[in-house]
Design a binder for these strands. Sequence first.
DNA 1: TTCCTTGCAAACGATTTGCATTGGA
DNA 2: TCCAATGCAAATCGTTTGCAAGGAA
Lengths: 150, 150
Amino acid sequence: MARGPRPSEIHAEVGRRLATRGVRYTSGRRTVIGALQRVSGPQSAADLHKRIRSVPLSSLYRSLTVLDESGIVRRHHDAVGLARFELAEWLTGHHHHVVCIDCGTVEDVELDAATETVLDTVAASVAGSAGYELGGHVLEVEGVCSSCRV
Amino acid sequence: MARGPRPSEIHAEVGRRLATRGVRYTSGRRTVIGALQRVSGPQSAADLHKRIRSVPLSSLYRSLTVLDESGIVRRHHDAVGLARFELAEWLTGHHHHVVCIDCGTVEDVELDAATETVLDTVAASVAGSAGYELGGHVLEVEGVCSSCRV
DNA sequence: TTCCTTGCAAACGATTTGCATTGGA
DNA sequence: TCCAATGCAAATCGTTTGCAAGGAA
């Protein structure tokens, strides 16, 4: 399975990628990447802001936007419509999400190669029959997490 | 595959479901359900409002909220974060989405029973290994639609 | 020096809500 | 009749943006 660069190399990778686009890898942006690296699952701007009070919200949003446009982070939207950000798959490895229907928590999950192959096949046939050129796939498994099941 | 009631029976089904919750099936709500029935893929409030000018936006949102809470429509959020609504699966049958990475269009796709079984198995194992009680699954296939590929 | 980036405050826009009125069972 | 539903306008709130100051190459 395609895991990304190891954690210690992520900053270098990101810096390189930004450089080729004429974008600076400033300390604020490093802080954001660092925070995303330390957690699991997509984070809202508010979540991140709580962890890194040094970066004001507006700058945080601006950084996340640039990082998204540069393919370094990926923006999702949770069930409530809140924007949530996570490192792109080339940095973390391909993975899927398990979403708790009750509390909304999202956790990352990696599938074994065999299963992933099956999904690829399914995705390809779906894309084909709809006349789409396949780009990727996202499997979201919904359920009730252990804390909500108590 | 579990298809829902036929189109002509949907209003009756919806009315029945709402009644058990002490919610009225008013003409405005009928209009909304009718509009959702006529299109394919999740619609934004603005989309719906364009089709049914008779229902003011605020009422539209209120109806969609009630219908969502009653399990009659389901709310999603597209790549831009806009809320999009579609009839619940017990009314339309279980299906998945193909999303165009370029224009954001979302189309419904139904898989054959065999493939669906495979997905169920995958979803169950994912939920299990994450300690979740399985609720359902969503496969989103991303690609480039034919019009964007020109 | 030259742009890109940052901070703050103000602006935006989708969605929600208060309140008086209307309408369905 | 009686309470839920509606419409309008005002309020929310996550997110974006203008502009002047700060910082990296």
